[in-house]
């Protein structure tokens, strides 16, 4: 399958593990350490699913999500968060996030969600072409 993932998190260790695990499953994954880097990458390359950390210094996850949805409405975003804030969860979902997941996340579950999000993007695209 052609799923391409962009993982955005300021925690280098976490993102390294994530990259390793996706790579092990032979899913192309690119890492970005902050919001602006992620947005720049999205301009240059195409991705299907963005895994986005909520709390990052500078541009926070919600702001990045908003930009992504504005510039690339078809790209699906899964938000990861370290602390359950219902408020930001509501905001995230209403801004068009595919899902809002609490850390620590089971990788199998995350992979499943990423695949579902990818399936959704494909469905959306096939309709756009029809």
């Amino acid at each position: 399958m052609g799923l391409r993932v962009l993982a955005v998190d300021d925690e280098a260790d976490f993102i390294e593990t994530l990259v390793k695990r996706f790579t092990y499953r032979q899913i192309p994954v690119t890492a970005a350490g902050n919001g602006p880097d992620a947005l720049a990458l999205l301009e240059r390359e195409s991705f299907d699913v963005v895994i986005l950390d909520m709390r990052m210094p500078g541009m926070d996850g919600l702001a990045v999500l908003q930009e992504i949805k504005k510039r690339h409405p078809l790209v699906e975003v899964i938000i990861l968060t370290g602390h359950a804030s219902v408020e930001s969860g509501m905001q995230g979902m209403s801004l068009g996030a595919y899902d809002y997941v609490l850390k620590p996340v089971d990788f199998g579950e995350l992979l499943e969600k990423a695949k579902k999000a990818y399936e959704r993007k494909k469905l959306n695209e096939s309709r756009a072409d029809a």
Binding site: P73, L74, G96, K116, E119, R120, L123, R127, A128
Partner: peptide
């Protein structure tokens, strides 16, 4: 094309879950 996508985005996308 992007705009059309955006408009379609407003319609539900059905997935089994």
């Amino acid at each position: 094309h992007k705009l059309l996508n955006f408009a379609r985005k407003m319609e539900p996308v059905l997935q089994e879950e």
